[in-house]
């Protein structure tokens, strides 16, 4: 029972926790793109996890997961890292420089900034939730 509901953190917090890990991995991919900005023949890579996360949380435009057995977990977020199979793909682009390198430094910097902002927002939201829980545990004193 505890593994299904997950203790005092609810589903939304689990989504945030999973997203932290995924954004960290995305940051790594972006760093590798930036480091290889001059490598001939290097194709810029992307890291996609958002659609899978939507599908797992049954929110947004994702489809709900069908389960064949009632004991199979519908909400797989407790083992989310095992269930998420994110996509490392080669990012399609129109500009290929003469040596076959497709890394656009400015686009990578913009993506890195966006990733960092979303990472920090996840951390901040988790902090708020922990603060609320602490307040409740202390009974407001």
């Amino acid at each position: 029972m505890s593994s299904f509901i997950g203790g005092i953190f609810n589903g939304a917090d689990k989504v945030q926790m999973v997203s932290l890990d995924q954004r960290h991995k995305r940051g790594e991919i972006i760093s590798s793109n930036i480091a290889n900005a001059e490598t001939p023949g290097f194709r810029a890579q992307g890291y996609a996890f958002e659609e899978q996360l939507q599908a797992l949380t049954n929110t947004g435009k994702g489809l709900a997961m069908n389960v064949s057995h009632p004991k199979h977990m519908k909400n797989a977020l407790t083992n989310a890292d095992g269930m998420l199979k994110p996509d490392i793909y080669v990012r399609p682009t129109e500009d290929i420089s003469h040596d076959g390198n497709t890394v656009d430094m400015d686009e990578e910097m913009a993506r890195m900034a966006q990733n960092q902002i979303l990472f920090r927002s996840a951390v901040e939201l988790l902090n708020r939730k922990v603060g609320v829980l602490k307040y409740a545990i202390n009974g407001g004193r």
Binding site: D104, D106, E107, M109, A110, Q114, I117
Partner: peptide, 14 residues
């Protein structure tokens, strides 16, 4: 959204 303006600026940089 802040990200749209970042994308626009990055296109300007490029």
């Amino acid at each position: 959204s802040f990200f749209k303006s970042m994308n626009i600026s990055s296109s300007g940089l490029a």
